[in-house]
Write a protein that binds this DNA or RNA. Sequence first.
DNA 1: TTGTATATACCTGAAAACCAGTAGAAAAAA
DNA 2: TTTTTTCTACTGGTTTTCAGGTATATACAA
Lengths: 212, 212
Amino acid sequence: MCTNKPISLIIVDDHSIVVEGIKTMLHGDLEINILETFSLGSSLMNFLNRTNTDIILLDISLPDISGIDLCKKVKLMSPKTKVLALSNHTERSIILQMIQNGANGYLLKNIGSMELKDCIHAAMNGEIVFSREVSSIMANPNMEELKELPRLTKREKEILELISKGLTTQEIADKLFVSPLTIETHRRNLMSKFKVRNAAELIMEASKSKLI
Amino acid sequence: MCTNKPISLIIVDDHSIVVEGIKTMLHGDLEINILETFSLGSSLMNFLNRTNTDIILLDISLPDISGIDLCKKVKLMSPKTKVLALSNHTERSIILQMIQNGANGYLLKNIGSMELKDCIHAAMNGEIVFSREVSSIMANPNMEELKELPRLTKREKEILELISKGLTTQEIADKLFVSPLTIETHRRNLMSKFKVRNAAELIMEASKSKLI
DNA sequence: TTGTATATACCTGAAAACCAGTAGAAAAAA
DNA sequence: TTTTTTCTACTGGTTTTCAGGTATATACAA
């Protein structure tokens, strides 16, 4: 790679240990120039307004805004800037959301120095980059992640919530001022959407899917 | 503090970003000498066998062994060595388990450079140290964490698991080769231990408490 | 406007869960 | 060895859930 112009890079992470670690790791690479580091999404947005940046290393868990939403905002304001997610989350759904929101790659924090540098350069070349472990997650989805979540209506979510609190059909009906027969119907719809046989399994599945 | 003898320190963490970050943070402090870093619990144990170490910064999520168990092993082998947990987990129960297993303090990875150094020195003086956020977690337990988990018997856990899979009393009885009446009894005991009114709420509570 | 989704409501009957007890055998702890 | 816990099993009765349907009003989108 020829060193025509250094890559300007921003780190966004609220853990100073991580920021220092990344800085140290990238220190040897003369083609990378760390412009600035931020611990808040809002400060990043202010800065981006006024500056040209090639690439952002973006943590997902930030104090003020989710990195997933932040990624979208960054891409709207500055589409040319590459965004690499750098997080501890290994959930397929989060990775996909990030990519959906325009991220140019997804790295896990167990990444090594060499791999990190490689990924940054690859992203600059327009590739979508995943760290090794991320690739393997994407290649081998587990059962749980593959079954797509049922889409529940507002009312169904409400009733699911009340079932999980131990209310009976009658009690839910009283609370929502509708007939218990209506609640029965919702119950059955919920169970058929989740493909389960009773309330216990329903709550289990809903909870696994983080729907309650 | 007078610089009679440097503090010998070991870092145990499988994320090289974090290891580099800590190293950089402690670099300025001449009283601290980083002896070695490990990414596996087993390599730490080998090293400890042969060397005197003042203090260990110990991550909780390691590939080969839980930091909680590792802490206990370290303390058995080398009781004088101080152990500071350094992790992302904010759960009261984990913090308490670490202290129970002999840790001399608990730090979160959002700690800053100054605080980290202060904590290391304080630990060397025999104090039990918590980073700022940890202190606040310990001081303000939330509802969920306060209610102590019911102690379930082996059989009860087994049955709870099967209930959560949607099996009926009869099916569970068949599977375990006992009378359905027995399962009924276990069911009622489970519900009374969790103080809930039906299976749905039971599964919800068990799942919140991470018992299934 | 003509579907599609949502929320509502009903019937009937069977199956399962839940309540309130008691109690003996086996296993584990003291 | 004694005590305690756990696992087992029962009686008898009430309440709730579940399974098979059907059906109407409303709202929202194509």
